[in-house]
Amino acid sequence: MAKRVSTRLFLRTFFIQSLWNFERLQNIGFLYVLYPVFKQLYPDKEKRKAVLLRHIGFFNTNPYMANIIFAMVINAEKSIADGDEKSVKKPEMIKAVMSGPIAAIGDSFFWGTWRPFVSFIAILLTILSVNIFDIFYIWIAPVAFIFLYNIVHLAFRYWILFVSFRLDEKMISLISKLEISYLGDMFRIIGLVIILTAIIFYFESFGFMPTMHLYFFDYTMPEALIFGIILLLSFLFGKFKPVIMFYCAILFSFILGYLEL
């Protein structure tokens, strides 16, 4: 069944949060993804009903990493459908035990590391295209962002589904061996270099010297002070919400306006 069902199942995984609710979070999404498999494994309607009701409980994990659970639950359900009565509680156990840890890995890698990293590249490309290259290349930053993010995201989601089918329980040891935090630190160091480059290019255009643009940081502000201001702002972002910081910046702009600086 694997390949044909998996491609269909893969497309269905994009809908996992379409009926996200506060009571049981992704439970209907989970049923929707696995419904064609249940239909194939349990042709008898009454048996299928019992399975569907068994799976309608609380379910929540990272939507990208959910593919691991889908594959493992399918393997367990296949054993149950083949008559292995010992496996009856296995699908629920997989859901309960795996959801939390793999959600933590997915959140930390994809949303805590990879997305910000790709954003950093897009930020640098934006600043380069606006200030250094021709304005004609301005579209490169958003296109690069969406392309880089999704090439990794989609490939990972597709790959992990098939690997989980094949490895089943061995997947747990494979995940535990993955050096996600090491990878995260590597991306963060490269990300830091990218952002520092973006800051330098930004102030090259608007800061260190008078330019044809509106110059705001052009007078008497040494480079060290600029970086000091950014670090101070970074500290403040740790203390206050972005929306408060945004309106403080707007208020600051009004003060500058009134002082005509």
Binding site: P116, R188, I195, A198, L231, L233, S234, F235, F237
Partner: peptide, 8 residues
């Protein structure tokens, strides 16, 4: 940039 640097 300040918000981004908080990431590091």
């Amino acid at each position: 940039f300040g918000a981004v640097m908080y990431n590091f």
